[in-house]
Design a protein around this nucleic acid. Structure first.
Lengths: 155, 155
DNA sequence: TCAAGTCGGTTCCTTTTTCAGACTTACGAT
DNA sequence: ATCGTAAGTCTGAAAAAGGAACCGACTTGA
């Protein structure tokens, strides 16, 4: 497996992993969803080295997850804003937060609570079937080869 | 940020990232959900080095995501089976597969199709609010500090 | 019975990433 | 002139990943 061509594998998970499959990238995205937008903001809340932050932000921009938007002309300053493609990562982040809440909690309770503005309640994210609306479980799902599958590789 | 204590951060995303936040681990989990159970099975389908596979499997066992179950006494041979905690990672994997299908596809179409046995249809996973059942969007969610939050750190 | 193959690893060495922290550039304020 | 801020870049050391050979306990086939 070569990481530099992982985004071309005939497997949607590999392609996603190529983009967000490392620790810092996922933590940077968490900050994005918490409305952090600027280099110093990411750096101070994550304690990531500036070198790596710079590289990760470039990569997220290259993949179209963030847009680099100037907010000051002199001196030139930029913020990093989630694109629609980036906003669509929300279910991944929320699924991870929910798993952490469920399986990695401690005696102090949840670090964050989420309120759904539409209904006004504190909620958990639940994954359902787009067709029947039932909650999804791994054992209820059967996998078929699709048109984009080249070989026996999975995906 | 020190990776060895990431699972104790007051942030559910960090804690999840501590366990599944690297490329190989996510790909190994994909194989688990595709019913791969044995060392050689993972190794040959992923082309991961045996060294790294060994280490990652140990880590997943240590975190209670896989169980190491003997299937032969002489010689001693083991398989790796998802625990309930591991099965609960399914929404994360499916959210990543769905994002890849949506945003990283090519002209050949999807590598895999998913059929929901309960309703018999090909489906996409959708994340909804546990309280009202509506589809979740990042902008509809407001975040509050919960009891497990120590400081200004996010989670 | 002896060689070859299988499975689940371990060991060793090289290459790539990451880390920690100083340095740079461009400006505004004191 | 000096300080502070923002958004980076550069450098050398440490850690992680990659590649490939080796090992031990069996089974299989000649």
């Amino acid at each position: 497996m070569k990481w530099d061509t992982l985004d071309e594998e005939p497997c949607s998970l590999s392609r996603t992993v190529a983009v967000v499959g490392d620790r810092w990238t996922l933590l940077i995205l968490r900050e994005c969803f918490l409305r952090v937008r600027r280099f110093e903001g990411f750096q101070s809340s994550l304690q990531i080295t500036r070198h790596l932050l710079s590289e990760r932000l470039k990569k997220l921009v290259r993949f179209g997850i963030l847009r680099r938007v100037p907010y000051s002309e002199a001196p030139k300053r930029y913020e990093y804003i989630l694109t629609q493609k980036g906003l669509d990562l929300y279910p991944i982040i929320m699924a991870m937060v929910h798993w952490g809440d469920t399986h990695m909690g401690d005696e102090r309770g949840r670090p964050l609570l989420h309120e759904h503005k539409s209904c006004g309640k504190l909620f958990d994210p639940v994954m359902v079937c787009s067709e029947c609306g039932e909650v999804l479980h791994a054992k209820q799902v059967h996998v078929h080869a699709g048109p984009g599958r080249r070989q026996v590789a999975a995906g």
